[in-house]
Nucleic acid binder design. Structure first.
Lengths: 356, 356
DNA sequence: TTGAAAGCGCTAACAC
DNA sequence: GTGTTAGCGCTTTCAA
């Protein structure tokens, strides 16, 4: 029974022989409708292909059980982890999640923000672009909002990885597992990478540490950069050569492994290598890479929880304070630093078939 | 100037000292407003932090320049490619894109579909779950709709990879590059994989082909399955051993490479291996993998174009026909089948840093 | 250009 | 439980 014209609640009511209000109740307060009536209404709605006009619904005061998530792009795994975590957590609480990619354009990001605001979603999650001088948008709306994967001192809600702890973790892993000379490689242009370096510095400043050096090199922290740096270090005379490389990103680490091997040395036998990102890719390289556990998922989850907390508070008069939450990482020690589980690669729990 | 209450178009009109209608026009038909008035209105709106209520807007008859994309999940690369392609193409045409993950739950998928329908988006894109017996939803709405990454004979619009061609391509690559005995491995449970097998069959049925066999083995096409199958084949006596393995998925292929090496043989020297997915991961394994180019991006782009075509047609009385579009793949021949470009790994164009 | 007014489809509050 | 009704904020139309 294809109709040309849109089916409205009135059509359903007439067809089912009930009052308009009952149809509304059937959808919003099913308990207020007699079971048999309810069934008849739902059956009719289904038969007619009735899809409630969400716009009218919201306008009339309905609640939108939907969160909006704005990502800077879809080409960074952390964003996918965030999306996955947020999506799962939202669903768990009976919410839906709508995602948008700003495609690294701030104006686009703001447009989606305005759209979500204008559409009266229950809350907005936003992962800002990874730029040095990022500042939170002025948010004139009263919609719950949380920024993900950034730290900031401005008022607002933030959930980020504890990059200081990440650096500390890797550094400790290095010297506690017997490294005698550590090289940290990468370009700490971004705040989060600089924090990792700082965390390492603090760890190395403590007692049992070994000598270390930081090579702030490579323009883009790409695999290519890693290759160059890895080779460079491996080709040093033995007495100046590090026996442990910590790369600021996993991509860099993967490249470094190739570089070390290209120079004729072995990983981990001659030089051990570790990354910092928690990149599932790390499982499948030539040598399973030591890194931290993927952390974006948890960031997404906590972001949703913060939104829900803000909703529950509903203490709208309260001044917005700075509310930061840091997600602590934990280490995944694998073959690239000597933890030799050769079956890691085929770990059935790690299905990366999708990352094509 | 933080207000507790929502700022409406009336507030802006009053504050700017103009008529309500002019504010509306300023946003929807800027050309109908005197430039200086326009500027004053926009300035005021900005100062007040006015975000038009999208619901009221749509209700009153505005057009929604927004597409909705429903993905079965976020953990398959093809979905990300689709999202990326659709997002870029939509933006190019002045549309936004809202994405939702059904988390492999059909009911959730339908909910998002209904939401998008109810919110009056300009069109809906849907990648159905990869199940054997999938059928299109009955779509009672008149909103443009296209299904991605599936082929189907039911009325509707479909954009999918040409899996037949993929199979053909790989098979030809095998025997044209001198294979003397080919093994095809994997479990063609899914239609798309079965099509690849069929494509190979057709290619091998042609002239210059070599002998081949199909091992419909492995329960999940996982890396683990690949490992087992690769080892199994490599351990055969030499006269029965294939010198070329085509795996139905890239994950499987990556595993197979490990399996072959675990059995003491070399890739590609003793046995060559190829995959079928176009998975960027394929670049970073122990041996760069021959596979097809990533195809999801193009599927996403074409999906959006189909939506726009449907919008432009606006020939609503027309009976819906079956409209299929197949995206042809092309081959990426790399080291795993003997094309030895050792620098592939660090290809700066292939930044997979994100896939963590 | 302006001001006034008619809905868009729905929810919630009301009397029944 | 049912039927009725007043808006929600906006776009559009129309006369001024």
């Amino acid at each position: 029974m294809p109709r040309r014209t849109t089916i409205t609640i009135t059509d359903v009511a007439r067809e089912a022989g009930v009052a308009l209000g009952s149809v509304s109740n059937a959808f919003n307060h099913p308990d207020k409708v007699r079971p048999e009536t309810l069934e008849r209404i739902l059956e009719t709605a289904d038969r007619l292909g009735y899809a409630p006009n969400q716009n009218a619904r919201m306008l009339a005061g309905g609640r939108n059980r939907l969160f909006g998530l704005i990502l800077p792009g879809l080409d960074h795994g952390i964003s996918l982890q965030i999306a996955n975590g947020a999506s799962a957590e939202a669903r768990k609480h009976g919410y839906g999640l709508l995602m948008a990619s700003a495609q690294t354009d701030e104006k686009t990001a703001r447009q989606y923000r305005d759209y979500f605001t204008g559409t009266r979603v229950a809350g907005i999650l936003m992962q800002p672009p990874a730029v040095r001088d990022w500042k939170p948008l002025d948010s004139p709306s009263h919609i719950p909002l949380a920024y993900l994967d950034v730290q900031n001192d401005a008022p607002g809600h933030y959930v980020a990885a504890d990059n200081l702890a990440i650096g500390e973790l890797l550094a400790r892993h290095a010297f506690q597992s017997g490294a005698r000379r550590v090289a940290v490689i990468g370009n700490p242009t971004l705040n989060r990478l600089a924090l990792r370096v700082e965390g390492m510095r603090q760890a190395f400043a403590s007692g049992a540490a070994c000598p270390y050096e930081v090579l702030e090199a490579g323009a883009w922290n790409s695999a290519h950069d890693g290759l160059d740096l890895g080779r460079l270090l491996a080709e040093r005379p033995e007495e100046e050569r590090p026996d442990f490389i910590i790369a600021l990103t996993d991509t860099l680490a993967t490249g470094a492994i190739s570089g070390v091997r290209a120079a004729g040395l072995r990983v981990p036998n001659d030089i051990r290598v570790a990354g910092c990102d928690g990149n599932p890719l790390a499982w499948t390289g030539p040598v399973p890479l030591t890194t931290v556990a993927p952390i974006g998922y948890e960031i997404g989850r906590r972001g949703v929880r913060q939104l829900i907390a803000q909703i529950d508070e509903e203490d709208p008069g309260e001044a917005v304070e700075n509310h930061q939450e840091l997600v602590r990482p934990f280490l995944l020690a694998r073959a690239s630093t000597g933890v030799n589980r050769s079956d890691d690669f085929a770990d059935p729990d790690i299905d990366i078939s999708g990352y094509l």
